[in-house]
Design a protein around this nucleic acid. Structure first.
Lengths: 156, 156
DNA sequence: CTTATTGCAAAAGTTTTGCACTATA
DNA sequence: TATAGTGCAAAACTTTTGCAATAAG
């Protein structure tokens, strides 16, 4: 856990970047919070520890870390980019079921994509870092509910 | 091809939406351009045919068509949402490879998800209508390019 | 010391919204 | 004619950038 921080610290040094307290604070937040955080989320969390940081610095740090492939920038299509430390192996098997009726989000685990990834890496010469899989449909409750009672969905 | 327009026209009517010239013009553009178009792109193209349309109407039409699942809203992470007509047949086996370095989008076909869908429908009691699958990683060129030559991010 | 990095505020860019007007069913 | 839909302009957001001040190596 702390190894990871040391490792990244070294990587930054090797690449000639300075180790500022702001960068370190941001990294710690990312290491402590493995969910997908928006820049705003990260800004708030970092602010607790380093109240003087500006959001521009957070964005610049995240961009740098993306370039170095230390974090992965994700997009769920809600107009906000989200970030997470790269390397989360478990995260890879975690997919979404989105109900088109009520918008509810379920999650499920499956490693079936491993095969497809291997196939792509071999066939397409494309190095995969992450993936996002969502299924859209109707959850149990909505499936069985009469149409008139249905809430208007807000798709993606 | 024109069938498709008639079909969608009917679908709108059935759902109680009005068939305005603006909506029709937007639909035609979407049917003629199967690439992933941004709202701005669509606005420009529609403007050629119906110069008085406003971009707000384009956004509202696209949102409506998304809800009706006539178009897919896609996000490649460059800050602009893109739209494409849903094609119920091939679309289902059509996935995306997004390069995190240069933003390039490749597509590939695979029907491996059929199995997963069956599994989910059985296990989760969730009725699947559609899915979206994107892989994020590095394309051949970016993978092999030395760091120093890399285009300054614009990462995903 | 030198130069990368920062914070602030302003700018940029996309998408949404309020409102009075218009046109479809 | 009733009401859904539209255009315009302003607002709301997220993200980027210019610049003078600061701090890391």
């Amino acid at each position: 856990m702390n190894n990871k921080l040391t490792e990244i610290r070294k990587q930054l040094q090797v690449d000639g970047y300075k180790l500022t307290p702001q960068r370190e604070a941001t990294l710690k937040i990312l290491l402590e919070n493995h969910e997908h955080l928006s820049a705003e989320d990260i800004y708030m969390l970092v602010k607790d520890k380093a109240p003087d940081i500006g959001i521009a610095t957070v964005y610049r740090t995240l961009e740098l870390l993306s370039e170095l492939r230390i974090v992965h920038k994700l997009n769920f299509g809600d107009g906000v980019a989200r970030y997470e430390i790269t390397d989360n192996k478990e995260e890879h098997h975690h997919h979404h079921l989105v109900c088109l009726e009520c918008g509810k989000l379920e999650e499920f685990e499956d490693d079936l994509l491993e095969d497809m990834e291997k196939k792509i890496q071999a066939t397409k010469n494309f190095q995969i870092v992450d993936h996002r899989l969502s299924f859209f449909g109707y959850c149990q409750e909505c499936k069985d509910r009469p149409r008139s009672d249905r809430p208007k969905a807000k798709i993606e």
